[in-house]
Design a protein around this nucleic acid. Sequence first.
DNA 1: TCGTTGGGTGCACTGACTGCAGTTAATACG
DNA 2: CGTATTAACTGCAGTCAGTGCACCCAACGA
Lengths: 199, 199
Amino acid sequence: MNQRELQRVETRRTLAEHALRLFSTNGYEETTVEEIAGAAGVSPRTFFLHFSTKAAAAFPDHEERVRNFTERLGDGHQPGNPLLHLCDVLAHGLDISSPTRRTRYQLLAEVAALRAEDARTDRDYEEVVAAYLIHAWGNSIEATIRAHAIANAALGVCRASLIGWGQAGIDPREVCFEILHRMIGSPFDAPLGSVQSLQ
Amino acid sequence: MNQRELQRVETRRTLAEHALRLFSTNGYEETTVEEIAGAAGVSPRTFFLHFSTKAAAAFPDHEERVRNFTERLGDGHQPGNPLLHLCDVLAHGLDISSPTRRTRYQLLAEVAALRAEDARTDRDYEEVVAAYLIHAWGNSIEATIRAHAIANAALGVCRASLIGWGQAGIDPREVCFEILHRMIGSPFDAPLGSVQSLQ
DNA sequence: TCGTTGGGTGCACTGACTGCAGTTAATACG
DNA sequence: CGTATTAACTGCAGTCAGTGCACCCAACGA
């Protein structure tokens, strides 16, 4: 990597790091962009070269994650049930590897502005999932609405699982996979006994 | 109703009306609060007495709707499957009565800031739905996460259906009810034949 | 070595939103 | 009635997020 690229990546990383730290220690509303930039040793103007909004600094690697997710999901023409595949990719892709990520989801439960930003980032995933399902099902108007509805639902389950992880520490992958599987995977041939626990 | 109350309600209504009109004709970003207030014949300061944010003016009756929804949903201790009841109340409660509402959902598909506001308002519904399910299921940590996950999913289906209505004009109640029913209602004893169309 | 490029800066600006100290007219009350 | 109170609304000064623009300087390529 270039010295320039290195510089850029490092500045961005530092900004995101201090942003998340300040958000979680001092509160989101109480933290100004000026403070974040100051802590990272750059000018406030520079902050906006790296993040389009103050909230975006809490989700620094979003684009990369969407790219990874898109790759793992594929084009909807694999053999097998596309909904089952979607459940797999979504639930197993939940990243619970670092305390930083958990901090992020703890913040998400508290700060409305971050939930709004999260909703915006979720929309990118929604488009990917919807495109995947439309590719698998065909692109009638009804299939499109159906695809978006299921994408919304599936991402809602992921979000709630991750926030639950942030607050209660329960592994979100299990609960997410189970609920997704029952809801959209292929619960239709599951033994009836397993159904009761949903209620 | 008081003359004062009347005045207040009327000002609020007028502000919301002009806000939605300006948003949809001139664009959300291009419309300033000063313009909305001017069109409604009040000062900009007054706008913020009625709406906490510019975006909130696009959802003027949100609190009332949440109240209605909460009432219709009940406390989760009715006889019968609570998930089925949830599907009923959600899908049949979708309000498609006026062109104004459709304009709102058309805007929602285009304007990120409004989607963010919508996500915030959706959170109120999420709390109501989650509380309802927790009441029906008990309040273990796992049930709580499950309740929030299903609430997120169900509201995601409603949102996508309504946006689909805005864009394609398809009655959202039918598609919403059908998808909700299959996903969370009680699809488990449905004939297998009906399942295939999901895929 | 020199032109170019890209990360960062400074400054002036817009626009959302807030706190506070009014004004005015509807209402409650003696 | 007349008077005190209240509530809708206003004006103003301020904070802060975010943008456009001209600029600097160090790294890079030829």
